[in-house]
């Protein structure tokens, strides 16, 4: 059983490495953010897998919180890139309702 978990974990690590390569290569800032987003969601899955490899059930809470933080981080970075200001007003959605 553990072997299967470890193989899956390694495969997800490989994906994270590929995401890092994309984050380093760019070329646009948005390519980098996509890559970082993939890296983050894969981190959640790796933490969940490690929970089962080690048998420490508490670790799943780390994955749960990371799933939330990752999303907020990506949206925050996007806002920072787009508005150059984290405290900008909420009128950046023209045409969308």
């Amino acid at each position: 059983m553990t072997a299967v978990l470890v193989i899956t974990t390694l495969a997800v690590f490989a994906t994270m490495a590929m995401a890092l390569i994309r984050a380093l290569k760019g070329p646009t800032i948005y390519d980098r953010i996509v890559a970082v987003n993939v890296f983050g969601t894969k981190t959640v899955l790796v933490v969940a897998l490690i929970t089962y490899v080690t048998g420490h059930a508490d670790l799943i809470d780390v994955a749960l919180v990371y799933a939330l933080i990752n999303f907020i981080a990506v949206v925050t970075v996007l806002k920072l890139v787009k508005e150059r200001d984290l405290a900008a007003g909420g009128d950046e959605e023209p045409g969308g309702d």
Binding site: V4, L5, I7, T8, L10, A11, V12, A14, T15, M16, A17, M18, A19, I21, R22, V34, A35, V38, K42, L45
Partner: peptide
């Protein structure tokens, strides 16, 4: 499920590149 999840993850990573 787990193994195919790992394989699909790597395919997605390759696609990203």
């Amino acid at each position: 499920c787990l193994i195919s999840g790992g394989v699909v993850a790597m395919i997605g990573g390759i696609g990203l590149l």
